[in-house]
């Protein structure tokens, strides 16, 4: 097959011509393409402060990191399924925020317990019962209303927790929390706005939104139920109950929705997500998350 040699033009080297388009009136300045990507841990001392129990700190970071990782995985499942293209972009941003938190927290867990396990060791090579996330984040996505209801509950509670944790004696956890406060504030605003739109939109959307809330509400209580590690290494989540419920109540009232009157989802032998006792939904989620990594032990990606 005979081909003409491509003519020599400014398109010949793609990156060169991209660089060229940076100058001139239609160039870089016009698009204000940002550059400043800050490392959230820049300048933060990663040495374990004296007086902190490394195992407790590690277990606590796993709890928070697993929450973020598992919810990120659920948000990722929305990709190519969102109700509008603008929401594709928005949901991916939420997922990226949570994934970023998860990576920092799992890394910290591996440092704090002295095992040196990496974020990937912890994400891909633990069994279901070793995951310490609350059950709220692992249930299947349901419809958009259920996912928004879950996000509203999680973002409200986690934002409040991160606010308290920004003063944690571990500088790494404090830095992750300080950054997370801003991210969760945005997640909460996003979830709040959609709760209002669905709750006070069409009769059908109001019905779906209420159903989503009713379904997710039994999982809320677990966010306020302290595991001993949380009491020793972090913030007593029971402290969050009152402000979080007040905040949620205000949103639901404005949306014309009813605060569900449902009992909490029962634990098993008094144990739930923080103890590694989960719903049936976590196993398949982790099987999918881990399948490629586990098929190639020792491989680098």
């Amino acid at each position: 097959m005979q081909h003409r040699t491509a003519s020599t033009t400014e398109d010949d080297h793609v990156y060169l011509s991209l660089a060229e388009s940076d100058s001139g009136p239609e160039g870089e300045g016009r698009w204000a393409y940002g550059t400043g990507f800050a490392d959230p841990l820049l300048g933060v001392d990663t040495a374990l402060p004296p007086g902190l129990d490394g195992d407790d700190l590690a277990a606590y970071c796993l709890m928070l990191g697993d929450d973020a990782l598992v919810l990120a995985q659920r948000l990722i499942e929305w990709c190519t399924r969102a109700p509008e293209l603008e929401e594709e972009v928005a949901l991916a941003n939420l997922g990226l925020d949570l994934l970023g938190q998860a990576r920092l927290l799992l890394t910290r867990a591996g440092q704090a317990d002295g095992t040196g396990r990496t974020e990937d060791d912890l994400a891909y090579w633990r069994e279901d019962h070793e995951f310490r996330n609350v059950r709220l984040v692992e249930t299947p996505n349901g419809d958009f209303a259920y996912s928004i209801a879950r996000l509203l509950l999680f973002a409200t509670a986690r934002g409040a927790l991160y606010e308290a944790l920004a003063a944690h004696p571990d500088p790494v956890l404090a830095a992750v929390a300080a950054r997370g406060v801003k991210e969760l504030a945005y997640h909460r605003e996003y979830a709040t706005a959609w709760t209002l739109r669905l709750g006070d939109g069409t009769p059908y959307s109001a019905q779906r939104m209420q159903a989503g809330l009713d379904a997710v509400w039994p999982l809320l209580e677990e966010l306020f139920t302290a595991h001993p590690v949380e009491l020793r290494a972090g913030v007593d989540p029971a402290r969050l109950r009152e402000p979080v419920l007040r905040s949620l109540g205000a949103v639901l009232a404005e949306a014309g929705l009813t605060v569900p009157d449902v009992p909490p989802l029962a634990p098993v032998l008094g144990r739930a997500g923080r103890h590694g006792v989960h719903t049936e939904a976590l196993g398949p989620l982790l099987a999918e998350l881990q399948v490629v990594a586990r098929a190639h032990p020792g491989a680098t990606w």
Partner: peptide
């Protein structure tokens, strides 16, 4: 996306899929 074998690759791939939605827009 759900099976990406490292968290770094998962984040990169999610950012990429998101860019594609952005480009479509």
């Amino acid at each position: 996306l759900t099976r990406a074998p490292s968290l770094r690759r998962k984040a990169i791939l999610l950012a990429k899929a998101q860019d594609e939605a952005g480009h479509g827009l």
